[in-house]
Computed example of a mutant assay.
Amino acid sequence: MTRQNESTVLFDALGPKGKQRSMIASIISGAVILGVLALGALELAKDGFFEASRWVNPLDVLVVETTWIPAILDTLLAFALGSLVAIVLGVLIGFGRISRFTPTRAASSVYVQFFRSLPLVLLIWISFTIDGHFGFTSDVLGWSGDARRLTFLVLGLGIYNGAILAEILRAGVAALPPGQAMAGYAVGLSHGQVQRLIVLPQVLRNMLPAVLAQLVILLKDTSLGYVITYPELLHSANIIGRDYGRSYLQALVIAALIYFVLAYALSKLVVYAERRLRKKTAAPKAAAQLESTVAGGTAGSGVI
C-alpha cells in the first residue's frame, strides 16, 4: 500500500471545492493565530518586555555560569535518574501485570492504578513531607540539602512514570501475536524464558517510540522539583527573577526556551529511534512478503 493510499484509507480525498475550502480555512486560522501573537507582542512591548535593560541581568555571564548552567545540569541529572528508576519499575511492574501468579498480578495492577491516578506534584510533596517528619534521609542516611531534594524528586518521577511505562509494556505484550510465545513453549522454554528471550526484545523494540515520548514528558516534569526547592530550571529562574525584579518574566521565558531546546532534542531522538526501527524491521518484512509470494507462485505453477 502506498503512502497516498495509507493517508486516504479512512476518508475520501478532497475534491477541488474541498481543497479550496481547506485552503481558505487554513489562511483564516493562520491569520487569527498571527493576530493573537501580534497583539500579545504589542502588549508586552508596551510594558517594556523587549527592552535590552531587562534582558541584561538574566543573561549576564556570571548569572549564566553560576545559575543557568548548574540548573541545566541538575535538571538533566534528575531526568537521568528518574528515567532509570521509571524504566526499571516499568519493566518489573509491567511483567508483573501479565504474570501467571494472581497475587503478583493483583499487586502490580494496584500499583499501576493507584500511582497513575495521583498527581505527580502531590506524590513528590507528600513523600518529601513524610520524610521531613520522620527524618529518615537526614538522620539515618545523613543526606541533606539538594541531595535530599533530588532523592524525592527522582522517587516521585520514577514511581509515577514507572506506572505509565508498565501500562505501555503491558499493551505492547498484549499486541504481540500469541503464536510467537506458543512457539517458545513448543520448543520447551519456560514461561520466564519466553518472556525474557522472545517477548521482551520485541516489546522493547516496538514500544521504544512510546517509551521515549513518555521520557520527554518526564523531562518536563522535573520542573515540579520547584515545590521542594530543588535547584532545577524553574526554581533557578524564580531566584533570578527575585533578585532582578524587573526581569522576572524574562527569566521565566529563558527557562521556557531552555526546556524547549531540551525537549526538542529528546523528541528528535524519538524520531531518529523510530526511523532506525523502521529500517531494521522493513527488510525482514519485505523478505517475508517476497518469500510468501515466491512460495505461492511456485505452488501455483505445479503440474497436476
Rank of each mutant, 00 (worst) to 15 (best):
F136Q: 02
G132P: 00
A80F: 13
R246A: 15
L169K: 07
A183S: 06
V271R: 01
L92R: 06
P58G: 12
M1N: 12
D139A: 14
A13I: 00
L42K: 08
G145V: 12
T129Y: 14
I87V: 14
I33R: 04
L266M: 08
F136V: 07
Y160H: 07
L189V: 09
L14G: 05
Q289W: 05
G132M: 03
G297F: 11
D60G: 09
S138L: 02
E167D: 06
E291C: 03
G145A: 14
E43T: 04
V154W: 12
I168W: 09
L212W: 09
P284M: 11
S7E: 10
L290S: 13
G225S: 14
P201W: 03
Q195C: 13
S292L: 12
L290E: 14
L212M: 13
R116T: 02
Q180I: 08
L77I: 15
G297K: 07
R278D: 11
V187C: 10
G142S: 01
A31G: 07
G158H: 10
G297Y: 09
A273V: 03
N206K: 14
V261M: 01
R170N: 13
H235G: 00
L252V: 15
G296S: 08
T298K: 03
Y272N: 00
P209A: 04
A273F: 07
Y111E: 02
G142P: 00
A78H: 00
A237V: 00
Y226A: 12
V9L: 03
R278A: 08
G162K: 03
T129A: 15
A171Q: 04
V216K: 05
G156E: 05
V303I: 12
P58N: 11
F101S: 01
V85K: 08
T102F: 13
I28V: 14
R246F: 15
L92D: 06
I164M: 04
D74P: 02
N5H: 06
F114H: 04
D221K: 00
L269K: 05
Y259P: 03
G15W: 10
E274S: 04
I27S: 08
T2V: 11
I164S: 01
A286P: 01
H191R: 01
F79N: 01
G297W: 14
A210G: 04
V227Y: 06
T67C: 02
M1E: 14
L252S: 10
N57T: 10
